[in-house]
Simulated scan of single mutants.
Amino acid sequence: MDSVSRMELVQHLETAFAAGPVTSAGLLDAATVSAARPAVLAVLEQLPKRSYGTIRDLWYELPDLPVG
């Protein structure tokens, strides 16, 4: 299975932050709606259960995720 990249997360979550901060559950919902593959959903399920203000906040929680 291919690893998940930051760019792939951005593709699936680019509209999730349009209305402001998003919870980890909201990110998972957005990725599901955008037909993210199971590996992406698995990465998002590992996030701490809290709100994230921007997509960049995810990189603090996922520092080893490759860029592209």
Rank of each mutant, 00 (worst) to 15 (best):
M1S: 00
M1W: 13
M1R: 03
D2W: 15
S3C: 11
S3G: 09
V4G: 12
V4Y: 02
V4W: 07
S5D: 03
S5N: 10
S5Q: 12
S5E: 13
R6E: 08
R6V: 15
R6K: 12
E8N: 10
E8Y: 06
E8C: 08
E8S: 10
V10R: 00
V10K: 00
Q11D: 14
L13W: 13
L13A: 06
E14P: 01
E14G: 04
T15E: 09
A18R: 02
A19N: 06
V22T: 13
V22L: 10
V22Y: 06
V22Q: 06
T23M: 01
T23A: 02
S24T: 01
A25M: 06
G26Y: 13
G26I: 15
G26N: 01
L27F: 10
L27R: 12
L27A: 07
L28G: 05
L28R: 10
L28K: 13
L28E: 06
D29W: 15
A30W: 14
A30Q: 13
A30I: 15
A31D: 11
T32F: 08
V33N: 11
V33I: 15
S34Q: 14
A35W: 13
A36S: 15
A36V: 07
R37Y: 10
A39P: 09
V40H: 03
V40P: 06
V40D: 08
L41N: 05
L41M: 04
A42T: 09
A42W: 12
A42G: 03
A42C: 08
V43R: 11
L44Y: 13
Q46E: 04
P48N: 00
P48S: 14
P48L: 08
P48Q: 04
K49Q: 08
K49C: 07
R50L: 06
R50G: 00
R50I: 03
S51H: 14
S51Y: 13
S51K: 12
S51A: 04
G53F: 11
G53M: 08
T54R: 06
I55Q: 01
R56M: 10
D57F: 07
D57K: 10
D57E: 02
L58S: 03
L58D: 09
Y60Q: 04
Y60W: 03
E61Y: 07
L62N: 07
L62R: 01
L62I: 02
P63M: 02
P63G: 00
P63W: 03
P63H: 03
P63S: 07
P63Q: 05
D64G: 10
D64L: 09
L65S: 09
L65I: 07
P66I: 15
P66F: 15
P66L: 12
P66M: 14
G68E: 15
G68I: 15
